[in-house]
Structure formats: structure tokens, C-alpha cells
Computed example of a mutant assay.
Amino acid sequence: MRVDLILPYLPLLNVIIIPIAGWLLRTFKKDLASKEDLTVQATRITNLERRTDLLDRDIKHLPDQKDFSTLKEAVAALAGDSKAQTQQLKAVGISLARIEDYLLKAGK
């Protein structure tokens, strides 16, 4: 490419290219985040990190699968004990009914 062909048109190209380049830079700059936007986002991220840390700390104190398994076993044992006591109370009730019948018949 020969430079002497471009030299006469160079001022005209500068008049056209520089405003177009400025317009493109301004357009791209609008899409970029400002310092204020970055500060706001950094603050939000810090707040979210703090909340996440608090949630992690609170979750550590909640019961886990082992605790629920132990609780399930304890409830099952209580249900078994309740059934055994119910059977014993039925037997006592039957005995009491027989004693009451005996006493009522003996009193006649």
C-alpha cells in the first residue's frame, strides 16, 4: 500500500475517525460500572458474607441425622413401654372386676 495516496485524505479521515472513536468510547463507558456501583456491590457482598456466616453458625447447632435417629429410637421405645403398660392395666382391670364381683356376691 502506498502512503502517498492516503496523505491528502488524512485530515479528512481524522475528522471522521476521531468523533466516531469518541462516540464509541462514550457508548462503551456507559456500559461499564462506576466506582459507586462497585462500592455498593462490595457492601452488598460483605453483608451477604456476614449473613452466610451467621447462618452457618446457627445451622451447626441444629440436630443432624444421627440426632433424629436417636430420637426415633427413643419414641419407639416409649411406644413399646406404653403398650406393655396398657396390657398390664388390662390385666389389673380384669382382676379388679373379678374381686368386685366376688365382694358383691359375698355381700348378698
Rank of each mutant, 00 (worst) to 15 (best):
H61T: 13
K60M: 09
A42G: 09
A77Y: 06
K90D: 05
I59M: 10
L96W: 05
V92Q: 04
Q87E: 11
Q88D: 04
A84M: 12
K72Q: 05
T70P: 01
D81H: 03
R26C: 08
Q41P: 00
E49Q: 14
D53Q: 10
S95I: 04
K60T: 07
I45Y: 15
L89G: 00
D67E: 08
K83V: 10
D56N: 15
K35Y: 10
L25M: 13
E49C: 05
L62R: 14
R51E: 13
V40H: 09
I59P: 00
W23N: 09
T43Q: 15
I16V: 14
T46C: 13
P8D: 03
A84H: 07
Q65G: 01
D64S: 08
G80Y: 05
L89S: 03
F28H: 00
A91G: 11
H61Q: 12
L13A: 14
R51C: 04
G80M: 07
I18V: 11
L25C: 06
A74I: 04
R44N: 11
L48N: 15
P11T: 02
W23S: 10
P8F: 01
T39L: 14
L10Q: 09
T27E: 07
D58F: 09
D64N: 14
I45K: 09
A74K: 11
Y9G: 01
R26N: 11
N47M: 03
K72S: 06
A76Q: 11
E36F: 02
P63H: 03
A91V: 12
L89D: 01
S34C: 09
T86G: 01
I17N: 08
P11D: 00
I45G: 11
R44Y: 02
L55H: 06
D31A: 10
A33L: 15
L54R: 12
L78I: 00
L55C: 13
L24N: 05
V40C: 02
Y9Q: 07
R51Y: 03
S69E: 08
V40I: 14
L13F: 12
A91N: 13
D31Y: 10
A74H: 11
L32V: 12
D53L: 06
L78P: 00
I17H: 05
K66E: 04
E49F: 06
